[in-house]
Amino acid sequence: MSLPLEIIKKKRAEAINRIIGRGFLSTKRVYVGMATCEIAAGSKEVMNAFREAIQTGLTDVYLTQKGCAGRCNLEPTVEIVEEGKIPIKYGRVTREKVREIVERHLKKGEVIEEWVIK
């Protein structure tokens, strides 16, 4: 019988493998805020817009949801994380902004600075 610490380490390795299997190692990871406050500010629309972009051909992106980071007045918020680069945090994201983020940031690597939370 294994010790709990050994079991949890095995479980963690399995979990990480599953996350990688879901595309975690894509060049860019997109986190959409999906807590009650974010949803009230319209984040479901934002999530749907990213999903649609992936369905219509956007690749090399890992899309996931996250809890509330605490920036109430700037919600909905979206983070774009790329290894080796400073994570970019966008505030007050809308369906229209998602279209631009997909085209400019996710496809061409251009950070849309006026929307970045600093």
């Binding site: 479980k11 963690r12 979990a15 599953r18 996350i19 996931t64 996250k66 809890g67 509330c68």
Partner: peptide, 15 residues
Amino acid sequence: NCGIMDPESLDDYLS
């Protein structure tokens, strides 16, 4: 972990 992981994923928490 609030704001950096998927709260509906045990895998995320385990990782």
